[in-house]
Design a protein around this nucleic acid. Sequence first.
DNA 1: ATCGTTAATCGTAGATAAACGATAAACAGA
DNA 2: TCTGTTTATCGTTTATCTACGATTAACGAT
Lengths: 109, 109
Amino acid sequence: MYTRATRKNCSDSPAVAPKVDPTAEEFAKLAWAIAHPARVQIVRMLIGREACVCGEIVAALPLAQSTVSQHLKVLKESGLIQGEVDGPKVCYCINPDRLQRLKMLVVGL
Amino acid sequence: MYTRATRKNCSDSPAVAPKVDPTAEEFAKLAWAIAHPARVQIVRMLIGREACVCGEIVAALPLAQSTVSQHLKVLKESGLIQGEVDGPKVCYCINPDRLQRLKMLVVGL
DNA sequence: ATCGTTAATCGTAGATAAACGATAAACAGA
DNA sequence: TCTGTTTATCGTTTATCTACGATTAACGAT
């Protein structure tokens, strides 16, 4: 047996309950949305510009149009952004509620 | 040509500079670290307990020991946590600086 | 109706992640 | 020294991500 404890609260803390906290999944999904440099830039761009057409986002990134479209899809699925069809173009904007939720979760760590 | 603009700041905004902002990569890496439910739970556990032995983390999660070890490795590589060897055990704790950095980046969005 | 533009989707290839069991390494105690 | 404990690593399998070109769908303008 190992009874040595050289660091406080290290080996001698009470056992942890093996329970899954429910927000971990939601948290991970939101974090995952911005877990890629391109998506971080897209989010920042949309926050800074209020709204942005897909083509402008493509032009601002060194990626193919199809790749950007996929990143936009990921962001849309996370709820962080939403797209609105405007003729042949699609106008993307931030979803303030989800962004706020992400901030809450991170700050609440 | 498409000149219709039904939404403000949508099609008629000035062009975006195709420049890569330098913190996007750092941001993405930190976000990636918590982009998995298990890692979110680990981080929360460490924040709430100050420090924690690997075995306790394994016990708290419904995952194999080797899998947890991999998640710990990811978190360590991101700098969010650090491990300290304590005999045969390893004691993990949060790196407050990196956590603060993550919070700053998210709040600064 | 046709043409050009815009953006999503498809198909594919390569890389990476996630999960596990098995093994190895490091250590304390007998 | 030998044994049991703890954790990291290895090897493997499966799944998902990322990136691209090509194609398709939707739309406005002519």
